[in-house]
């Protein structure tokens, strides 16, 4: 019996639900979404592969021309690879609607 004031307040409030596919909440400034790779900057050192806790990254080939394979279904979005990259070749995008029926594997290629 101690919540009447709450009830009055709630009855005057508008609903906060968003009509999702049409309206979206903006992502927070430090949001960690899908990974993206900059081929120009990457030197193929493999640091990202070593620190990935979920084994979601794999180097394809060796040396400075190595390419990256990114297993989206394994990624835990911790952004440790972004932090460990000595050349800032990796960034986290703001993309978050990533659910899919099949395992998504991104082949990052040098053109």
């Amino acid at each position: 019996m101690a919540m009447e004031s709450e009830l009055v307040g709630a009855s005057l409030r508008r609903p906060v639900t968003l009509r999702y596919p049409f309206e979206r909440r903006p992502v927070p400034p430090r949001f960690r979404g899908r990974l993206s790779w900059d081929a120009e900057k990457c030197v193929g050192c493999g640091m990202c592969v070593q620190v990935c806790p979920a084994f979601a990254l794999e180097l394809v080939g060796k040396g400075p021309m190595a390419e990256l394979r990114y297993y989206l279904n394994k990624c835990v979005f911790c952004s440790q690879c972004v932090e460990s990259c000595p050349r800032d070749a990796l960034t986290m995008t703001e993309e978050y609607e990533l659910a899919d029926y099949k395992h998504k594997i991104y082949e990052f290629r040098r053109k």
């Binding site: 430090r30 960690r32 911790c78 952004s79």
Partner: peptide, 21 residues
Amino acid sequence: LELVTGNRVNYAMSTVGGARR
């Protein structure tokens, strides 16, 4: 928490040797 760390649950805020953000 989301504002500071970028995530609601797994903040990934502390790292070996300091804080990440």
